[in-house]
C-alpha cells in the first residue's frame, strides 16, 4: 500500500522527529514520499539535515595535552 498523501504543514510539524528517526515506519514513509515530489519541503529538510550534521561535529574536540598525560598516568596504574 502506498503511503497516505500528507500536507506540507504535516511534514513541517514532524520534520525534526523525522530527521531524528523518531517516527513510526508508516509516518516515516509518508514523509519520504512527500519529499520525493515537494521541492519546498525537500529543500527545508536538506537544510535541517545538513545543520544537524554540523551540530554533531561539535561533539569532537582535540583534548589538551595535560588530559592525555593524566589519562596515560591513570591507565598505567590499572
Amino acid at each position: 500500500m502506498s503511503p497516505r498523501p500528507i500536507s506540507c504543514e504535516e511534514v513541517l510539524a514532524r520534520l525534526f522527529a523525522y530527521l531524528d528517526g523518531e517516527l513510526r515506519d508508516v509516518e516515516q514513509a509518508e514523509i519520504d514520499r512527500h519529499l520525493e515530489w515537494c521541492r519546498d519541503c525537500f529543500t527545508r529538510a536538506e537544510f535541517e539535515r545538513r545543520l544537524k550534521a554540523r551540530l554533531a561535529q561539535a561533539g569532537r574536540a582535540s583534548p589538551p595535552e595535560r588530559l592525555r598525560e593524566r589519562l596515560k598516568l591513570m591507565m598505567a596504574r590499572f
Binding site: 574536540a61 582535540s62 583534548p63 592525555r68
Partner: peptide, 14 residues
C-alpha cells in the same frame, strides 16, 4: 580510550 579521546573530550566539553 586513546582512539575515542576526541569524541569523549568533545562531548564532555559540550
Amino acid at each position: 580510550v586513546m582512539r575515542l579521546m576526541d569524541r569523549l573530550y568533545g562531548t564532555a566539553l559540550r
